[in-house]
Simulated scan of single mutants.
Amino acid sequence: MKTLIVFVFGSFLIYGAMAQEAQVEQKAGPEIAFAEEKFEFGDIYQGDKVEHVFKFENVGTETLVITNVQTTCGCTVPAWPRDPIAPGQESEIKVVFNSAGKIGRVTKVITIVSNAVNPNSKVTIVTNILPKKESDSQ
């Protein structure tokens, strides 16, 4: 019985030490944390330009540098900070979406490339594009 108790107690100690080590390794270096990773515009009309600002914080221990922000097409244009972001500092990425030539439900993924421990973070915008308003087509 003593052996079983020692084994169980020892297992908990080892598991706890491994969990603490994993947490420390996860936070070492810059880390980007978004306030929200998805934004839905709802219904818009074909030809509308809409924009959204994704706020984030460097929750890591070292300076964050965003090297690129990639989109899947020219209809989505990002603007991001070019200066390094210190630990604890907040910043933002602005995304402008042009719905010209699009129709129906659209999802656009924006990939943020950086030196963070999560080097390819992603945020998403979603919208439903309705046909042009009658007054716009005359």
Rank of each mutant, 00 (worst) to 15 (best):
G60S: 10
K102F: 10
F56Y: 14
V24D: 04
S135L: 12
T63A: 11
I85Q: 07
K27N: 07
T76I: 13
K108E: 15
K55E: 15
P30N: 02
L13S: 05
D136P: 03
E51A: 10
V113L: 12
P84Q: 05
E92I: 00
A86Y: 08
A79V: 04
T71D: 10
I14Y: 09
G74F: 09
I32D: 08
P119E: 06
Y15N: 14
I85E: 07
K55S: 13
T107V: 14
E90P: 01
I66E: 01
A17K: 00
I14T: 14
A86G: 03
K49S: 13
T63I: 11
Q46P: 03
N118P: 02
E21N: 15
A17N: 04
L130F: 04
F97H: 12
E36N: 03
K108H: 07
K102V: 04
Y45H: 08
A22I: 11
V117K: 13
K27V: 12
V117Q: 10
I110Y: 12
V126Y: 06
V106S: 05
A17I: 01
I112K: 10
Q26L: 09
C73T: 15
D136S: 08
A33R: 14
A116Q: 01
Q23C: 07
E21F: 15
N128C: 01
E31V: 12
K122T: 14
N98D: 15
V117W: 00
K49Y: 05
I110T: 15
I93N: 05
I5K: 11
V69F: 11
V77M: 10
E31R: 15
M18W: 13
P84E: 03
K102G: 01
E36C: 00
I103D: 08
P119F: 07
R82W: 06
V95Y: 01
F34Q: 11
V50T: 13
G10R: 09
T72F: 03
F41S: 06
T72H: 01
E31G: 08
V106G: 02
I5W: 11
G88P: 11
A100M: 13
I110S: 11
F39Y: 13
L4T: 13
F7N: 07
Q70W: 01
W80V: 00
D43H: 07
A28H: 07
T76V: 15
A33N: 09
F12G: 06
Y15R: 08
A28S: 12
L13D: 02
A33V: 09
A33P: 00
